[in-house]
Structures are given as C-alpha cells and as structure tokens.
C-alpha cells in the first residue's frame, strides 16, 4: 500500500491550513480595536511574557493587550470551538445533520439560570455559575425523562429535549415579565442575545476546565461516533457498547455547550453551520470532522467577534451576527437540498 490516497493526506493538509489560519487570525485580532497596537509591539509584548526583553512599548499597550484583547480572543476561540464540536457530536449521535448544541435544552436551561440570577440581583460570576448549573440540570432532566420513554431512544431524547426546553423557556419569559424594566429586563435581554463583550481572564479560568473535560473525550472517541451514527442495532453488531458511548458523548458535548453558553449567552447557528461546512471540506468521517469543526469553529467565531467589536460604532452582540450569517446559510441548504453534507 504505497498509495497515498488512502491515507487522508488532503484532510490532514486542510486541518493544518486551518490551524495556521487560526494562529494568524489570533495574531491579527490582537491588532484590531479602538486602541491601536502595531504588529511589532504586539509580537514584542507577547514574546516578553516568555522571554525577558526590554519593553519598547507604553505600559498601557500591554495592559490593553493582556486584560482586554487576550481574554476576548481566547474566549471567542474557545466558545466557537466548543459550540461547533458539540454540534458535530450531537449530529452524530442523533443521526441527523440538523441537530444543534441546544437540542437537549442546554441553552434554554442556561438562559433560565441566568435570568433567575439576574432577577435575584446576583453578581456576574454568580449569573455565569447559575447559567452553567441550570444548563447541566436541564440536560440531566431530559436524559432522565428519555430513559422512561418507550421505543427508539434517540427519538425519546429529542422529544423530551423539546418539551423540557419549552418548559424552561416559559420560565425565562416569566422572569422577563416580572423583572424590573429599568435594569433587570435589559440585562436579561442582552444576555439572551449572546455576547463576548467584557470578557475577562477569570472567565477563561472558570470555563476552561469543564470545556477540556468535554473536548478531550470528543476528540478521543471521535472514530466511534461514526459507528453510533449508523443506528443502535448496527452499531451493536459492530461491537460498540451503544448505551455507554452515547452517554459519554452526551455528557461531554453537554459540558462543552453549557460552559460556552454560561460565558457567552446563547450564540446560535455556529454549532449547526460549522460542522456542515467542515463536512464539505474534510468529508463526513468524524476522524477529521471533529478536529476540523473545532478549528473552524474557533476561527469562525473569532472572525465574527472581530466584526462585532470593530466594524460598527456600537458593538453588535455576536449572537445577532451569527444568526445573520446562519439563517441565510440554512436557507441555502434547504434550497440546494444538500442537507446530508
């Protein structure tokens, strides 16, 4: 077997290109913003963190770079990576290319938790924590309900996901009704739009652990997600412990989604659109699809966030922008009739 075509070399090249683009994108993003930081200074400041070099830049420049731009850039990448890998994972286990990270209610649970915390006047940190915990709680509830359904397990999951989601959404609407229209209501509304503004380093330390706890199993188990996507019976005759694997994938994808939603609010469409585009680039096998979704998702959200904070005089919440890009793309998919990817 000397033939290279069987070895997925083109896919690996695409993944490498994505990684290079992402690194370049990150570097360029440091430069972008109201306070200009030239490229030479950017590189200098970044290197100075590792090697002791004489500063040739004002102190303020380093502060902007580390306390404002770095957390924001990292968060955009982490959230994009999380949402699109969770989307890809859910699409695999539900055997449906139309599944999105909020299919099991992670987003509506987080929204409920955030609204509840805002209503009780909690701090930003508590709002985040509450969103994260309610998100996990919602998916846990969906899982428990689905275990009692008869028939096809994935259908039971999707149906109970829809029901439990709408229950929590109703709760969120109720909170909006009783919220103080002067400050609480706008805060809830703004949270629901999804935004990365005001990102701090402490946000990163808050989410990085649960995110990694989810992302690592998704990467390790990605080949088996292929087999899960064939359906329960076929996967079992191929020797896969379907119940256990599905549970691990759901727990991982949920951890990843919940932590992303907790820090950024509900940012839609990334988890649906990016896995689709990735499939076009590297094919359907999760061997390449999972890493590609992660890199591409990070790159995409970084790009959209740069638009969100730089193009317009007033910052537009990133959730709105992703929908502006996502909805036309979805329509395009319907018209093209190529939803299978």
């Amino acid at each position: 077997m000397d033939n290279n075509k069987y070895h997925g070399r083109s896919q690996r090249l695409i993944l490498l290109a994505m990684a290079v683009l992402l690194l370049g994108g990150i570097l360029v993003s440091f430069k972008l913003g109201r306070y200009p930081v030239p490229m030479k200074e950017t590189v200098g400041i970044l290197i100075s963190r590792v090697f002791p070099i004489e500063p040739f830049w004002p102190e303020r420049m380093a502060t902007v770079l580390f306390n404002v731009r770095l957390p924001r850039i990292l968060l955009a990448c982490l959230v994009g990576c999380s949402l699109s890998s969770a989307g890809a994972a859910y699409q695999g286990i539900f055997q449906n290319p139309m599944a999105a990270p909020d299919i099991l209610g992670a987003s509506s649970g987080a929204a409920f938790g955030a609204a509840l915390a805002i209503l009780s006047g909690a701090s930003t940190r508590i709002i985040m924590l509450s969103a994260f915990l309610f998100s996990l709680l919602t998916v846990g509830l969906v899982w428990l309900v689905s275990q009692r359904t008869r028939g096809k397990k994935t259908l039971g999951l999707v149906l109970s996901g829809i029901m439990v989601s709408s229950l929590f959404s109703a709760g969120t609407s109720f909170f909006k009704l009783v919220a103080d229209p002067a400050d609480q209501l706008p805060a809830i509304t703004y949270w629901l739009m999804g935004s990365l503004s005001g990102a701090r380093m402490s946000d990163i330390t808050f989410v990085i652990l649960p995110m990694l706890l989810g992302l690592v199993p998704l990467i390790i188990l990605r080949w088996r997600i292929n087999i899960l996507s064939l359906g329960d019976d076929e996967a079992r005759t191929l020797g896969v412990n379907v119940r256990r694997l599905r549970l691990i994938v759901i727990v991982s994808a949920t951890l990843v989604t919940s932590s992303a939603v907790a820090v950024s609010g509900t940012i839609g469409w990334v988890g649906l659109v990016i896995p689709h585009l990735s499939r076009k680039l590297v094919g359907s096998s999760f061997r390449h699809l999972m890493p590609s979704s992660m890199l591409f998702g990070a790159l995409f959200l970084l790009l959209v966030d740069n638009i969100s904070r730089n193009i317009f005089p007033v910052e537009i919440p990133i959730g709105i922008l992703t929908a502006f890009i996502g909805a036309p793309f979805f329509l395009y998919l319907i018209v093209k009739g190529d939803a299978r990817g």
């Binding site: 064939l230 359907s284 096998s285």
Partner: peptide, 13 residues
C-alpha cells in the same frame, strides 16, 4: 446512513 461516508470508512467501521 445519515452521513455520506466514503466506502473505505464504511468498511473500516
């Protein structure tokens, strides 16, 4: 299947 795998991937499974 839900996704368009290559023939080789199908057999590899």
């Amino acid at each position: 299947p839900a996704f368009n795998f290559t023939v080789l991937d199908m057999v590899l499974m």
